[in-house]
């Protein structure tokens, strides 16, 4: 198996990469290559130009400040996994990243690559949805910031223009002591999830839920926030009944139906995993 013929470019700066991307028809950016390379090997894609980002400087960083975390597009998933900063400030990402592929693919795979690929079952887009990520993109006309809700347009389709490049992802911070829950069901560890759920909970001084986020992934074409459940949770103390009610809202989602699982099974999983993720987040949240 061989990739089809293409011209190879290896720019070293962001402006150079953007200029190449803008000057060719049918060009693709190559980040960690853990999705695009299989697609090339299997000849699902035929780019005339491959623009490799691996030599571009200034795209590999994890910066934490009072507002949250900013992660460079070419930051390797394995570096995210090992980051003590992220374990402290962004426990949901720290936990979810361990479920992205395997050691060998996380060593190469990147934050931005996974997000731009936008597989419906992928963990990184789910964490971005759960945390209201803001995606920084650069193109020939400058830079813009895209909220994740406007970035994930549909099945493996992002709001990035053909001449735009994902530069970084910002994850606005949650209060110190918030609880994160992550639940995924797949046939084997490292497989794409059949369904997964992410929950974030902040507990107020009164011991009640002050802020909640609930996201279901792998069920529909893009990760979805369950706003009805989130609103219902605020002001409640965590309990079996409260989480049952919240999870009920996940059972009616539009679900994918494929060789891995029928839609009804994904809907069932969404409810079960949502409840478990919420209970886990509640348990881990410091009151």
């Amino acid at each position: 198996m061989k990739p089809p013929p293409f011209e190879y470019h290896d720019p070293t700066t962001i402006p150079e990469a953007i200029s190449l991307l803008g000057s060719y028809e049918n060009a693709r950016l190559l980040a960690g290559g853990q999705s695009l390379m299989p697609m090339l090997n299997m000849r699902y894609v035929f780019p005339d130009h491959l623009i490799d980002l691996n030599k571009v400087g200034g795209l590999d960083y994890i910066n934490t400040d009072a507002d949250g975390v900013e992660i460079g597009g070419m930051t390797r998933q394995r570096d995210i996994e090992f980051s003590d900063e992220l374990a402290e400030h962004c426990p949901l990402l720290s936990e979810a990243i361990r479920h992205v592929g395997h050691i060998q693919t996380r060593n190469r795979g990147t934050m931005g690559g996974s997000l731009a690929h936008l597989d419906p079952a992928a963990e990184i887009p789910m964490v971005c949805a759960a945390m209201d990520a803001r995606i920084r993109a650069q193109g020939p006309n400058g830079e813009r910031t895209i909220p994740i809700a406007e970035f994930a347009l549909g099945f493996m389709t992002t709001a990035l223009a053909p001449d735009e490049m994902l530069v970084s992802v910002s994850l606005p911070g949650w209060a110190s002591g918030h609880g994160a829950g992550f639940q995924e069901f797949g046939r084997r560890h490292g497989d794409f999830a059949i369904a997964s759920a992410a929950a974030l909970i902040e507990v107020g001084g009164d011991g009640k839920i002050a802020r909640a986020s609930l996201t279901i992934s792998g069920v529909g074409p893009v990760p979805v926030r369950i706003e009805e459940a989130e609103e219902g949770l605020v002001g409640e103390a965590g309990s079996d009944g409260v989480f049952d009610t919240a999870a009920e809202a996940c059972g009616e989602l539009e679900a994918l139906d494929d060789i891995h699982a029928p839609a009804s099974y994904r809907q069932h999983l969404a409810k079960v995993l949502a409840k478990r993720a919420l209970a886990q987040a509640w348990e881990r949240a410091a009151s």
Binding site: Y8, N54, R108
Partner: peptide, 16 residues
């Protein structure tokens, strides 16, 4: 292993 880290050699180009 690429620079001490395990990697799939089928998902890496020789030029890289």
């Amino acid at each position: 292993q690429l620079n001490g880290r395990s990697a799939r050699s089928c998902l890496t180009l020789a030029v890289q």
